[in-house]
Design a binder for these strands. Structure first.
Length: 414
RNA sequence: GCGGGUGUAGCUCAGUCGGUUAGAGCGCUAGAUUGUGGAUCUAGAGGUCGUGGGUUCGAUUCCCAUCACUCGCCCCA
């Protein structure tokens, strides 16, 4: 160990930020619960094949971003770079397919060996949902509506734009792929270096290139809509009609392409202008081919994942931690008495801070710094009368309260 | 993985055209105030100037490397 820095791209999450993350997670969890999505947790690492076989051999995630290692038993395992593959694996190995449709919510850390940047980390956290076994466009609509509900709950829906596209069914997509390859091949040497390699790996991604020369070439590229067969077009029309019915605004973006191979039909991204290059905050789509590709029965799926760190940077309505009530024994002899009162009040559900040392002035300062709502000042004089002084730290008002009614009196601070 | 920027106290930053003990504000600790916080005043603690190497009589300052962060590309959440 060269030094005591955290590993590049990893971070400690201190109370303030953890509070923000928890707010994101809980808001998402509650919204998911209202839609009937139950929380699950899959392992943080899987056999590497789980990701290799599902994400596609050409995806950047598999080719250069996975944390893969051989464990002591000789198995090759990988820290999960995303959540969907693990859920699909669970569906198969757990024999859950007979209970379709299934609706799941998850949250947790993901790992990708990327160059860190604002809003991009090597260990980051996602929350996501998966709807399995629903082939109808209704599923896509529900999942997108749930995503919008989460952003709305966080108060950031107005900062986000929903971009929407269809990748069509397999036939439409491979037909379009052929057309694109044929078109771009004519300009092969004019394309940027990145796009030339994309032409081999994932030609659809060229459409999303930011390179100026690429964009000129892209202008006249074949449109996906011309390659969509009737089934794919109808499916997409049903999705947009459903979003219209729910008054969920979206912007069609024919250049929106997913990096992962298992997507088909609906692809969507909620993006924001406020996070620089890492503007995607919640994204997903339909992946009807995934479970089959992994070796299970053909199973439809739709879902999304959202980056907790990115959402945390945008959320403005994060609630404060519960404000405590401080107990302040005036003299050392009353420490134990104070502790007993703290013990009793805590068991009744109050948030109680007990200063460990210092005179009254010092303890009040500390109570103030902890943003305490009130302090219970426990002194010999009051105690003789079986009472304590309760001071409202916001107003400075204080009154003597009998110990028997202390809990009732404090209810006003809850 | 590629290109640019930045690293000085817990935080935000000055500063050193290379020269004794490196500064400010905020924060922190203590006191003024041995039963009353937020304000004020006083005092104090806290730095291997990111790390390693080079040049030099001398490096926090110049050079090289490296690490971390950051902006864009790439990728995506």
């Amino acid at each position: 160990m060269a030094n005591l820095q955290p590993v590049r791209g990893t971070r400690d999450i201190l109370p303030d930020e953890r509070q923000r993350h928890r707010f994101i997670e809980e808001t998402a969890r509650e919204a998911a619960q209202r839609y009937g999505y139950a929380e699950i947790a899959t392992p943080i690492f899987e056999f590497s094949d789980v990701f290799k076989r599902t994400l596609g051999d050409t995806s950047d995630i598999v080719t250069k971003e996975m944390y893969t290692f051989t464990d002591k038993g000789g198995d090759e395992v990988t820290l999960r770079p995303e959540g969907t593959a693990g859920v699909a694996r669970m569906l198969i190995s757990g024999g859950l397919a007979q209970n379709l449709p299934l609706k799941y919510f998850y949250r947790g850390p993901m790992f990708r060996y990327e160059r860190p940047q604002k809003g991009r980390f090597r260990q980051f956290h996602q929350t996501g949902v998966e709807l399995l076994g629903v082939t109808e466009p209704l599923g896509d609509i529900e999942v997108i509506a749930l995503g919008a509900a989460v952003l709305d709950g966080l108060g950031i829906l107005s900062k986000a734009t929903l971009e929407l596209n269809t990748l069509g069914n397999t036939e439409s997509r491979s037909a379009y792929r052929e057309k694109l390859i044929a078109y771009f091949n004519d300009y092969r040497t004019d394309l940027s270096e990145d796009s030339q390699s994309r032409l081999e790996r994932n030609p659809l991604r060229i459409l999303d290139s930011k390179d100026r020369r690429d964009r000129e070439i892209i202008t006249n590229a074949p449109e996906f809509s011309d390659s969509l067969d009737a089934e794919s077009a109808d499916f997409f029309a049903a999705v947009t009609a459903g979003l219209d019915a729910l008054s969920i605004a979206y912007r069609l973006n024919s250049r929106l392409v997913r990096g992962l191979d298992y997507y088909c039909h609906t692809a969507f991204e909620f993006t924001t202008e406020e996070l620089g290059a890492q503007g995607t905050i919640l994204a997903g789509g339909r992946y009807d081919g995934l479970v089959e590709q992994m070796g299970g029965a053909k199973t439809a799926g739709v879902g999304w994942a959202a980056g907790i760190e990115r959402l945390a940077m945008l959320a403005e309505n994060v609630p404060d931690e519960a404000r405590p009530i401080a107990i302040i024994p005036v003299v050392p002899e009353l420490q134990t008495k104070g502790l007993a009162i703290a013990h009793d009040l805590r068991s009744r559900g109050f948030v109680i801070e007990f200063g460990y040392r210092g005179n009254m002035s010092r303890r009040l300062k500390r109570a103030n710094k902890l943003n305490a709502k009130a302090s219970i000042i426990l002194g010999p004089d009051e105690l003789e009368r079986g009472a304590a002084t309760v001071r409202n730290l916001d107003t400075g008002d204080q009154e003597e309260v009998p110990l028997e009614t202390l809990a009732d009196h404090l209810k006003q601070y809850s």
